[in-house]
């Protein structure tokens, strides 16, 4: 694999993670448990969509086929999306949203902190902006994990169940393939194994502070890196891409 193709794939992967999670968070608009949370979740959605736009713009530029970020977001099929599966999981209740947010924002915090040092200037610049935003997302999900974990018996039980349910999707965040291999050598990508212990320690610390139990590690899901997704991504895309597919040149 050539360096350019690897950068294209890497930018897509980062962009897809942001886009799909941004879409999931945006779906919660007007469905937050309280007004303040409604604002918080939609603001975080906006941060993710902004980041997706930056990464997909860069992917389009690297691919050099005269495409835009919108083309990549709205005209690719499910099998050409490379986001991690955890981003596409539906929000069952507020606890499931918070559990996913804690796992993902901890991952993003350490990922983007390292990527700020990337030898690719654009990836480093977007990461430097992302890390400032993610810091607030992480504080938000850490606070809520503790509030719900230490809350009532019911909120404790729901929070525990949410972590147990999502745990099988955590290993995939650290999967690497040929793309990483090529870019690690160039100093562009990071070795995800290096941030895994940092991620684990922070998540464990918050879960335990919240008087919850760290879920047992069993079977782990995989597939996103190869474009193989849960049944949920297709539904997300059918909604997200509807307008551009029905009216191909529609403008905002």
């Amino acid at each position: 694999m050539k360096k350019q193709e690897a950068i294209y794939n890497y930018a897509l992967r980062l962009g897809d993670n942001s886009l799909v999670l941004g879409h999931r968070l945006a779906e919660l608009c007007s469905k937050g448990p309280i007004l303040e949370e409604d604002l918080a979740l939609t603001n975080m959605a906006l941060d993710h969509i902004g980041r997706a736009q930056a990464f997909l713009n860069y992917a389009a530029q690297v691919e050099a086929k005269n495409k835009t970020a919108d083309d990549l977001a709205y005209k690719r099929g499910e099998r050409s999306f490379y986001n991690n599966l955890i981003m596409e999981l539906p929000d069952k209740d507020f606890a499931s949203t918070i559990a996913r947010q804690l796992i993902v924002s901890t991952f993003e915090y350490f990922l983007y902190t390292e990527l700020m040092k990337s030898k690719d200037e654009t990836i480093a610049a977007i990461s430097a902006k992302a890390v400032k935003e993610v810091r607030y997302h992480l504080a938000h999900s850490s606070d809520w994990t503790c509030r719900l974990g230490e809350g009532t018996d019911l909120s404790h039980e729901k929070m525990q169940r949410a972590f147990n349910d999502v745990w099988m999707f955590t290993d995939e965040l650290f999967e690497m393939n040929e793309v990483d291999e090529v870019l690690i050598k160039e100093g562009i990508a990071i070795d995800l194994n290096s941030i895994k212990p940092l991620w684990f320690n922070h998540v464990k610390e918050v879960i335990e502070e919240a008087t919850l139990k760290l879920p047992e590690t069993g079977y782990m899901q995989t597939g996103g890196r190869k474009g193989i997704h849960t049944e949920y991504l297709g539904h997300i895309l059918s909604e997200m891409q509807y307008l551009q597919r029905a009216y191909p040149t529609a403008q905002w």
């Binding site: 949370e37 604002l39 975080m44 607030y136 938000h140």
Partner: peptide, 13 residues
């Protein structure tokens, strides 16, 4: 603090 996110992402309530 009421909420870490206000009417825009850059503000808290």
């Amino acid at each position: 603090l009421i909420s870490m996110f206000g009417s825009t992402a850059c503000k808290a309530l």
